[in-house]
Design a protein around this nucleic acid. Structure first.
Lengths: 124, 124
DNA sequence: TCAAGCTATATGACACGTCATTCAATGACA
DNA sequence: TGTCATTGAATGACGTGTCATATAGCTTGA
């Protein structure tokens, strides 16, 4: 009972610790080298990953813990930074279809290497 | 190489997922039942845990990933809510010594039960 | 004992996330 | 086809976290 609770809390703290250490490390590295944060990278990564299918915005919302409005704002920033473009979708004019620009694709390629490297350093 | 990267990313995603699911669940539960957030609870928990020693503020900063200024603000809110009090420290008048109020202690006791319960539901 | 530096905390500006709301487009059904 | 509900996305108000700084108290050494 008490020991179970203790173990639970221990387990939770270790998850928190791994999460904070790693996400801060990624964030700092990406911020320093590419001037984008972790969430920006995650979106770039998702878009890069699924460069086939259309109508992304919606899909992104489903693949990330971020809110729809958060996604919208991250995409704003990426678009302003010239890394990503919104295209309207022919078959459903409410939907938007996202695509990396050349700059975005290039940056993502480098950032992904960095990202994996930081993961390697920080995860068991 | 590629497979290692893939595994790394998988591992990272699973940590992220566990972290988000669990922290959101705790946050919602505490927010709904006790009107405090996760960080507020963590601070209450830390203070409750070490109710012996003095000059807490500093010590808290070392036991949490939060920034010193974040801790200061969380303590502000807890103090405003009447759950916690700052006492000045006799031997070093820069330091502050934190103490749960009766209300704080009572709330922490209940909230801790809830906290452990949510952990149990969300962790393997 | 006084200056210079260090330490503990608070505060203000700012970035970013959430929630609630809005708006346009779509679907469904009479 | 016209109305009503629903869906995809954007926006504004707001809370909370971070960084840089301010402030007060402590310490050290001449």
């Amino acid at each position: 009972m008490a020991t179970t609770d203790r173990q639970l809390v221990e387990q939770w703290r270790s998850i928190q610790d791994a999460y904070f250490r790693t996400s801060c490390a990624i964030d700092r590295a990406l911020e320093a080298k590419f001037d984008i944060g972790l969430n920006e990278f995650e979106i770039l990564d998702l878009v890069a990953e699924s460069s086939e299918t259309a109508c992304r915005m919606k899909a992104l919302g489903e693949r990330t813990p971020m809110t729809q409005s958060a996604v919208s704002k991250v995409v704003d920033r990426l678009e302003r930074a010239g890394l990503l473009a919104r295209h309207s979708c022919a078959d459903d004019r409410r939907s938007l279809f996202l695509e990396l620009t050349d700059a975005g694709r290039a940056l993502h390629k480098q950032a992904a290497v960095e990202h994996r490297a930081v993961l390697k350093e920080n995860l068991s």
